Simulated assay, not measured.
Amino acid sequence: MSYQKGSKKAWAGRIDPLGTPDTFYWHQVIELGDIDTIPASTISKQIVLLGYESDEGVKRNLGRVGAVEGPSAMRAALSKFALHHDHLAYPIHDVGNVITDQDHLESSQLQLANSIARLIGKGYHPVVMGGGHEISYGHFTGIRQAFGSEAKIGIVNFDAHFDLRAYPNGPHSGSPFRQILDESKGQGCSFHYLPVGINPAGNQKALFDVHRQAGQNYILQSELVGDLTTQKELIDTFTSEVDHVYITLDLDVMPASAAPGVSAPAAFGVTPEVIRELFLHVLDSEKVVSFDIAELSPKYDDGRTSKLAASFIYELVMKYTAS
């Protein structure tokens, strides 16, 4: 594993000739730094961007590789977004990437965990750009380090898959929540997990059994059409029972027509508009402490998926900086 601090090379785009703040784009105002030297946050819900460059979990899970380029693609898309928040009052920091070298997945997950714990400890709200969904084990571990084993940390996973698969030969992109479940049992910690958008065709019956035995609820892909009152009530019940919420978005929860550049493209899926509505609803809980996006594979993308991923980061920032 290795670490690379934030770089201006990752942020580029057009510059309006007027050059006034009301013509700025994100690439013009991003604050670059590194985890060691970034100062403690002085405001509530201050966003910090961190990349997780990893394909090893997808490779081990026999998926199509390419997610290692996800952070770069998300930064490129964000660069061109028009600025609509007060960047002086709410600066956005980019502290670079945690990188999985060769097949050293476990050590990069540990480094990601330590990075997340340090950023939360400094008062930041991390937004992590993946990378395969193995991102979630390291990310959650860091949140638990930051808040302590007694804290009830709820995971809301927008995903077509449970990612509760066994890992006899080592962790992979399909095992992060099984790892968290197993460690929670072993350490006597509570486990709170709500997957949203589950597609039965992509999950073995055994995975439904694992989830059921853990005493957890889920929302099926087929239930995310029409009126969403019942689903929102289930989310509200879930968030009310935990101290903090961690959101993870696997882009394959949406159909390939909207998100073609993912590790496991879906014929059917939940529309981006519905995912956006529920994502914002979870944020309304005021308990979200961290967020990540997984499985963007730019080599299979035409720009749609990277823009979609970046748009969720944009929505989060706009939500937190609204006056």
Rank of each mutant, 00 (worst) to 15 (best):
G269M: 13
L280W: 07
G269F: 07
F238V: 05
G215T: 07
D284L: 00
L316W: 04
D284Y: 00
L228F: 06
E277N: 08
F208P: 15
G188N: 12
A206Q: 12
S285Q: 01
Y193A: 04
Y246T: 02
R276D: 05
E295T: 08
D252G: 08
D236C: 09
D252W: 12
I219P: 00
E277Q: 15
E233S: 10
D302T: 13
L228V: 07
Q187V: 07
D182H: 00
V210R: 10
Y193I: 03
S240N: 12
P195F: 11
V225F: 15
A259V: 13
G186Y: 08
E273Q: 09
V242M: 02
Y300I: 14
I198T: 11
S311P: 10
T229F: 08
N203A: 06
S190M: 11
T305V: 10
K287S: 00
Q204M: 07
K299R: 14
L308R: 06
V242G: 02
V282G: 00
L194W: 00
F291K: 01
S222Q: 09
D227Y: 08
E295F: 14
D182T: 08
Y218N: 02
K185W: 15
H281T: 05
P265E: 13
I293Y: 00
L207Q: 14
P255R: 11
H211L: 15
N203V: 06
A201T: 13
E241I: 05
L249K: 04
A214R: 10
G269V: 11
R212T: 15
G197Q: 02
Q187M: 09
H244N: 03
A214N: 08
F291P: 03
G202Q: 10
T248A: 09
Y218I: 01
H192Y: 14
V289K: 02
A267S: 15
T271R: 14
K287N: 01
N217A: 14
L280D: 07
Q221M: 15
I275E: 05
G269L: 09
D227W: 00
Y246N: 09
V253A: 09
Q231F: 03
Q213P: 03
P298I: 03
S306A: 15
D243R: 06
G261F: 13
A310R: 07
M254I: 12
P195W: 03
L207D: 12
P255I: 11
G188C: 11
G215F: 00
I293C: 02
H281I: 03
G202C: 05
T271M: 13
E277K: 12
F238N: 04
K299S: 14
F279V: 01
Y300E: 15
N199I: 04
V242T: 04
E277H: 05
S240F: 12
D292R: 08
A214T: 09
P200H: 01
T229R: 08
D209I: 15
G188M: 11
D227V: 06
T248W: 00
